[in-house]
Design a protein around this nucleic acid. Structure first.
Lengths: 144, 144
DNA sequence: CTACTTCCTGACAAATAAGGTCAGGAATTT
DNA sequence: AAATTCCTGACCTTATTTGTCAGGAAGTAG
């Protein structure tokens, strides 16, 4: 049961990391990569794409890097995943790749269930903000 | 967002078809395949695996085929998917392939969210019985 | 200006998983 | 015994995911 491909999870972690660094000026890709153990080159590609979401901005050159342009409590996990999914032609029925592809002409018994599942998943995503995750981490940290 | 691979969806559709044929004796793989547009050879493999779930039985020879051994209103979609997933080492954190694989030692902020997602998905699966699907189909059928 | 650092971009390569096939064998029924 | 069905494991193909690379563009410091 794969719900989000690694790429999307990297996107989430990157934004999570940016949120933690907020107020400290731009954060370099290499720093984000290190903090979240993400392959740098790959992350470069992902962050570049994420610019299109309007959630973050890039600054080049010395002291360059990425920074969030929206408050962490206004960014939901759903925002991020929806954007990442949107890049690759979203799917109406979860079962089939397209309606024309569906042997039951887009009207199968299962599509209703799949939509309920999709809704359930995005309900969780939409009610989880980056701020929530940050606070959750603070509580979780064990001071061994 | 891939929630169930085609193989699992074929499994569901096959059982759905068997439920519709209940009481009429064993149904041949080839008939199920035709009714649900599933590649025969592939379905053969899937049904054979599904025997292990205890939901169905096979009969060989002339007039052979598969039949359900549990009532359609006692079989949930969750039963089917859980069995299919179970075959390939279930995953604790949805993010990582294994805890040892997790760069955050199985204790990342995200695992909680993933578990909530997983629960939400299986709630839908577990409350949907094969009987529900059959009735849903009856209503849906248009008499154009 | 120039050297340095950073992001940017598209093309490309490798690994993995999914989807599907095949041949031959084992039961079962007529 | 002949026909029919399921059974089984090994195999192949394709698609997706995951990443890599080289070179360029933009910004900053000195």
């Amino acid at each position: 049961m794969l719900i989000a491909p690694k790429k999307n999870q990297y996107a989430l972690r990157a934004i999570f990391e940016l949120a933690k660094q907020q107020g400290k000026g731009p954060t370099k890709v290499s720093d984000i990569a290190k903090a979240q153990s993400i392959p740098v080159r790959f992350l470069e590609v992902i962050l570049n794409q994420l610019k299109g979401s309007g959630l973050l901005e890039a600054k080049r050159g010395f002291y360059g890097g990425y920074l969030l342009v929206r408050e962490p409590d206004k960014i939901t996990v759903g925002d991020i995943f929806q954007f990442m999914e949107g890049r690759k032609a979203s799917v109406s029925c979860v079962t089939c790749d397209s309606e024309s592809d569906c042997p039951f002409h887009g009207d199968c018994v299962f599509s209703k269930m799949w939509n309920r599942v999709k809704d359930a998943v995005f309900t969780v995503f939409n009610e989880t903000t980056i701020q929530d995750l940050i606070e959750s981490e603070k509580k979780q940290t064990k001071v061994i």
